[in-house]
Nucleic acid binder design. Sequence first.
DNA 1: AATGAATGAGGATTCATTCAT
DNA 2: GATGAATGAATCCTCATTCAT
Lengths: 200, 200, 200, 200
Amino acid sequence: MPKVVDEHMREATRRHIIRRAASEFARLGFDQANINTIAEQAGIGKGTIYLYFENKRELFLSMLRYIAQDHILAIRTAIALDGTLQQRLERLFRAFTHLAQEERDSFNVYMSALYGVNRAFQAEATKLLRDYLATIALMLEQSQARGEIRCPHIEATALMILSLMESYVLSANVLGQSEQAILQQASLIAETLVQGIGSA
Amino acid sequence: MPKVVDEHMREATRRHIIRRAASEFARLGFDQANINTIAEQAGIGKGTIYLYFENKRELFLSMLRYIAQDHILAIRTAIALDGTLQQRLERLFRAFTHLAQEERDSFNVYMSALYGVNRAFQAEATKLLRDYLATIALMLEQSQARGEIRCPHIEATALMILSLMESYVLSANVLGQSEQAILQQASLIAETLVQGIGSA
Amino acid sequence: MPKVVDEHMREATRRHIIRRAASEFARLGFDQANINTIAEQAGIGKGTIYLYFENKRELFLSMLRYIAQDHILAIRTAIALDGTLQQRLERLFRAFTHLAQEERDSFNVYMSALYGVNRAFQAEATKLLRDYLATIALMLEQSQARGEIRCPHIEATALMILSLMESYVLSANVLGQSEQAILQQASLIAETLVQGIGSA
Amino acid sequence: MPKVVDEHMREATRRHIIRRAASEFARLGFDQANINTIAEQAGIGKGTIYLYFENKRELFLSMLRYIAQDHILAIRTAIALDGTLQQRLERLFRAFTHLAQEERDSFNVYMSALYGVNRAFQAEATKLLRDYLATIALMLEQSQARGEIRCPHIEATALMILSLMESYVLSANVLGQSEQAILQQASLIAETLVQGIGSA
DNA sequence: AATGAATGAGGATTCATTCAT
DNA sequence: GATGAATGAATCCTCATTCAT
């Protein structure tokens, strides 16, 4: 099966390029990032990038999709079924904190795509946003089924949870708070949300 | 006093340029925005911009500061002393909704500066973030003094409120919700927050 | 009238660029010619060319039009009304010889546009071809009106005259014949044509 | 004799590549033609071309030589000994018309090589030009030997005949005349030439 | 002060050619 | 021998910035 091996190699190279691209895009933004530099960082020739991605824009979009997979997996894992709603919310918050710190590059890229001006990028980032919301909504429905909460506005509530956590983590970062400091807020935030939601 | 008149003229022109720049920067982002186009839109010569701003970057930063003044004023007005905490939070949320819709340009510019990759821009946007937080924290302290709530973590709570509202409005926008639809969430969100905070 | 002076300057610069461009295009062809080099040769900055021409293609087309004006003027002058048909044909041939030698650049550019593969260029060069033909046809009609010849196929004959002269001069050039040598053929060619046409 | 078979195979592949290359070169010109596309059209790998031709330039030159053989054969056949000079000239003109129409690709390639700017290509195309001239000169000498004409300037006359025919056909093409229309000029042109030459 | 013509650094992309398989 | 993945030189064009008028 040389075909499969080649396919694997090709996919591995794609991933490799994407990772280096993510670092550059996160550091400089789409426009300022330089294909040449990305190629150098990836240890390949300039032209080689164009064997894997149609153009700079497609490279960026591919990277967004790749990031989305990673993040949604992290989020799904975080709010796995076990534990109380409070515990699941805490895990969710910690997952975001972790993403914003350990995967700072990809988190920044995702946020600037979502809130930037490029419609194509925003559309792609919005897909991830919807995925997040669906996942959180599912959690709320499960909690409701268990009688943990009474939540008549699942959609709006899911958006509240996501907005609060995502933006809290990001803002705290921007304000210079350490990961440690942010993580300590986990229970406060989860508690606040559970109380707020429960009586909605 | 020709000096003062000139000073006034100069300031007026600065404002004028900034307003046109804001529109272009919001529409295209910092890199894609074109100094030439901004000059045309402002009805002045390309070179003239450089008599008022050192370079493109400084123009962008000046615009950020200008936007910040506007926004912080809107927010301060929204949470003026009168009314219950619930009412003030509702007004705050409506103010954000309004900014994101009516001042979409400047709101987008601010958000992409805050969550974008350019450190200089982020630093400037962060100033506005701190202003927001101080204003919200003040409101919480007032509510506490009145006995409306018991809130031991003023800072964290302020950040929660800001994060939730700002990001909620923006995400709802991105998801295609109408201003009408978003405004209808005002009381739900305020209620959730009051309940969540109150028992913290 | 500063406007007029500026207009003059602008037109002068356009001409200047076109002349240098013609030299490069003639030496290397459209694709191999380098905008950078053309700018250097013209003693102006790279970007300046784009203030005068939309892009490389438009520069080339402008140059073709400029050449066409020159050449058609030379041809019209050559076959001015005075003299016999034989004399006028000799002058026409000498004009072509002169063009192919003294204006070698522009003559080559025109021929490669006419016989090249770029449709836009060919269309532009064809305009000049039609102009040539009309001018020669007019001469034939005048000669016929004077009773010098009897020529029932004016159009075809004009094309014969043009084809023969243009291509003869060019081929002789390619074969390495000197301008001197080619000019000596003038009367032979004119004589041959007059005899051939007269009895057509 | 595996060697001979291989030689045959090798030569067949060369021809195959050349034919596809001719089509691309004629369609796009030397610079715009793409080695990759030629390889695809020929149904072989990109690298394989370099086993048969040193580089793009050599491929083009080989193609020119290949075309030249074809053309000179067509021309020689057209002016075979039999018939009067008028008839032979008519056949020659028809042969050119046919080449320009049925072998449009190769005719265009040859003409743009001859009148284009690349010296190496021009030199190769000039060889064909000389071959043409020799063939036509031979015809004139035969006609003179038979007493059909009295032609003191064989070389110049041959060049006149070739120039007129080649360029007439090409120009007529460029002007949009149909093959039908051009062919109808055959006797007019032959007649004109015979009359013109006869009395020279 | 105001202008806009001129500049040239910078960057995405193409494609002939190489070479390991 | 045949292949095509990899390469990087080469180039058009944009646009922030300058400066003579």
